[in-house]
């Protein structure tokens, strides 16, 4: 298990390769469909949200209010491919070093990862409890009223958050490779 700690660096991310299992500690920001479209259309980040050298987590958590703060009840990844039209631009513009999600992303994101020293980190979809246990604190939330709870930007402090590198900064994508291999296996069986 490779340890990744925020702030994340160009060198650190370029040292990773497809298949590496990592444990992430530090700050993550959530952002999913509405946030991506908003930023892509020129929206600005709210005060206190800085994505430079950071990791964006494709996640819409279940969060309950507790003692004047928040408690994350469940927080697994959502499907990333929906953000493919927006992700490359957001990596470039905001200086992301990593994107956590599930299901992988396409060629434009892969190219942005190569160009800007970013990786795609695959968390286990559906594993909302194991991943919520890694969230030690909710530091803040933006756009809660405007976008609704699942679509808001949650700032999370995490420890030992497990993920697998499935798209690296060297142009390799596990998803492309598995698609091609499974397609050729299927053709043999039709």
């Amino acid at each position: 298990m490779i340890q990744l700690t925020s702030p994340f660096t160009d060198d650190g991310m370029r040292a990773l390769k497809v298949g590496d299992e990592v444990a992430i500690s530090g700050t993550l920001f959530t952002g999913r469909d509405v946030v991506h479209k908003y930023l892509h259309e020129g929206g600005s980040l709210p005060a206190g949200v800085n994505l430079r050298d950071g990791i964006l987590y494709h996640c819409g958590p279940v969060v309950l209010p507790e003692n004047g703060g928040w408690r994350v009840v469940a927080a697994g990844p959502t499907t990333s491919s929906r953000e493919e039209p927006y992700q490359a631009q957001i990596i470039e513009k905001f200086g992301l070093r990593g994107v956590i999600g599930k299901g992988g992303m396409g060629a434009r994101t892969l190219e942005a990862c190569r160009k800007f020293g970013c990786v795609y980190l695959h968390a286990v979809g559906g594993a909302a409890q194991v991943l919520a246990e890694c969230i030690k604190k909710v530091r803040g939330v933006s756009f809660l009223e405007q976008f609704g709870s699942p679509e808001a930007i949650w700032e999370l402090e995490v420890e030992q958050f497990p993920a697998v590198v499935t798209m690296d900064a060297h142009g390799r994508s596990l998803h492309q490779e598995i698609f091609a291999a499974s397609q050729s296996e299927l053709i043999k069986r039709l």
Binding site: V62, V73, A75, G76, A128, Q129, V130
Partner: peptide
């Protein structure tokens, strides 16, 4: 990594049941 993923899934199933919280946030 397939085995790792399934182990994590197994642990998640136990944890969700014990805590009476959603298996998946969706």
């Amino acid at each position: 990594i397939a085995e790792s993923a399934l182990k994590l899934i197994e642990r998640n199933i136990e944890l969700a049941k014990a805590k009476s919280q959603p298996i998946c946030q969706d």
